[in-house]
Design a protein around this nucleic acid. Sequence first.
DNA 1: AGCCATTTGTACGTATGTATC
DNA 2: CGATACATACGTACAAATGGC
Lengths: 250, 250
Amino acid sequence: MGGPRFEPVRAVRAYERVVEQVEEAIESGALAPGGRLPSERELMVQFSVSRSTVREALRVLQARGLVRSRPGDPNGAEVLPFSPAALHQSMTTLARVAELSLGELVQFRMVLDGSAVLLAARLRTEGQLAEMDAAVAAMRAAVGQDEEAFGAADVAFHDAVARACGNKLIQVCTDVVRSIVVKLIAKRIAAAPDREELMRRSIRHHEEVIAAVRAGDGPLAARLSRKAMYDYYAGYVDEGERSALRALLE
Amino acid sequence: MGGPRFEPVRAVRAYERVVEQVEEAIESGALAPGGRLPSERELMVQFSVSRSTVREALRVLQARGLVRSRPGDPNGAEVLPFSPAALHQSMTTLARVAELSLGELVQFRMVLDGSAVLLAARLRTEGQLAEMDAAVAAMRAAVGQDEEAFGAADVAFHDAVARACGNKLIQVCTDVVRSIVVKLIAKRIAAAPDREELMRRSIRHHEEVIAAVRAGDGPLAARLSRKAMYDYYAGYVDEGERSALRALLE
DNA sequence: AGCCATTTGTACGTATGTATC
DNA sequence: CGATACATACGTACAAATGGC
């Protein structure tokens, strides 16, 4: 007792050390987005490892969304700007391997979007309100004509709200989960028999949310937002799960 | 116009095809957790690719948390059970590269934990209530004595709540974000001058939350939970961000 | 435009440390 | 303990792709 407390030494692979150093360089700002890593051959000299090791490290960094490399590019791998792609990837994997149900995903959206509008009602600028108005206007223009444009305008609305809420994590997560949900049931939604009526009702709901946000009534905006989400998606969720969604409506 | 709509062909790397096929096998259940992939040499035969290609694919799969390989293992790479490790990794990267502030992370926790208790108040079983009670009892036993045990009991409490809420995505995200927050400020919290008083207050708050959950009053439980989180962490958040946290308290 | 040097993508061989039997 | 099979890592080689001249 009382001796020096040694820590267990985990065998750390060579490629991991390369990954760590490059990550540090990116995090510290020494490597900014748009910048280039040295070529693979240069890296193997600097790190004193083989090219395979360098390449395995680059694959991991690429999987984490930090860099991208193209064949033949004389400038070396490119440092990417931040993107939620990696989060998107791992959440999609999570959805599959953890067998997330549509109900769970929609419920998560209700939580996040509800919180986003709650915060947006406090923090929104006039410009952001205008963006929301414009998005709903675009939705209205697309009703019954352009399914894609309607979806894009809907995304624009929710993105404007998410940006207005002032929390980048909420913003990114809403975006990621939304795209997963849409990917799951886009076809079913577009093929709904009363599609046009659904669109109109969705627009009314969005307008009500905007009004509450404009009035600064966060709790009301949150309730309306969750209700709108429920109305739009509940039909695609199993009845057993639907009751769990309704728990968020009171 | 009106001709066949060809899609752009992206050059897909050999290692990507390997990744895709293995992912499909795992997703389809052909490869279950605990199962083994063929050895690297076997894989290069089956896929008709070189060893390097196989290894790069395995690195990507490992980065996504799907498999793990150890040197000398005669059985080949192991298929891992689901784990939020990949989500944890990408959210940590997100926190760094998107420069998430402590305030944003805490706010996200307030949203998720608040929603979790709201749902738990509806869906909790008696067994889960007992788990929450046990966790708080463990917290009480650790006050002023064992900082680690206190933290572990706190985690157990929040995990019991998250499991009781019935949404695996909420559960995983609360866990991931909690560990990121704790990692950020564990030292500062442990070194707080009035640490013991903070612990006691935290326990009181947890008890109040349990009472509300037991009574089935979700909205009250949610308010109490967010308030508890705010009290515990607000001191470490910049004043400017603190007001955004308070927006969740009304 | 075309050519060329460089880089990446991929393949193959080999050596070494390690885990299991 | 030895034998075997494995992952790790290194080095070389060549085709395909890119950017700059």
